[in-house]
Write a protein that binds this DNA or RNA. Structure first.
Lengths: 103, 103
DNA sequence: ATTATATTTGACACTTATTGCCAAGATAAA
DNA sequence: TTTATCTTGGCAATAAGTGTCAAATATAAT
């Protein structure tokens, strides 16, 4: 069964839908074509600034793309961790707790 | 209101409860006293190996300490992010989804 | 107050990750 | 087969992480 799309897959799909070339989008991001290629294939991670620009260029919902990007970053941190799932839940708890008490 | 304890706070508390010196624990970890001091005060992050050794030295529940440590690491990734909470939830969703479909 | 011990701080060095450029190789379209 | 696009891997520059050491500060005991 197909798992949820990676950020790279989303970016590539949308770029192709728009008929844009790596070269063109890379130029708008002011980076080398090779890097964008690697980002789309998940070999490298984009920076947050690049994600924001990409959302604009590809007319994707910025918030959704950032959430996608951040969640991937989080999962990367715990990808080899047996206790990853517990850690995620603990992180949510702490986040709730802290919000409750400093706002 | 007091927020939940940091890993560093837990480590310091337990070390002091046991009457151990920074110097002693640092020696067991095979690092300089200065680093352990910084870890306890949250100025530096411990490695996972160090956390495991610390759990042993301080007789803390290893799993609990690792979860604490990882969740702090996760929160660090999104500490300045407005969408952090949404990203966390999205990460949990993906984790569930992936577990369901590769196991 | 002096001394001794413990902790903190900051400068430095070393290593590892990250980020990017470039050129050569592979793929695909014409 | 030519041409355009994309991918790959090597290299350089920079940033981040990890540790040492010595000096400064704090704590405790005489």
């Amino acid at each position: 069964m197909k798992e949820s799309k990676t950020t790279g897959e989303i970016l590539r799909e949308e770029r192709e839908k728009k008929g844009l070339l790596l070269r063109q989008v890379a130029a708008m991001l002011d980076i080398d074509t090779a890097i964008l290629s690697k980002i789309e294939r998940g070999e490298r991670k984009a920076s947050k600034e690049q994600i924001i620009k990409l959302a604009e260029i590809l007319e994707l919902d910025e918030e959704a793309l950032i959430v996608q990007y951040l969640s991937e970053k989080i999962l990367y941190e715990i990808k080899d961790e047996e206790l990853g799932s517990k850690a995620l839940k603990a992180a949510e708890q702490k986040m709730k707790y802290n919000n409750k008490n400093n706002s």
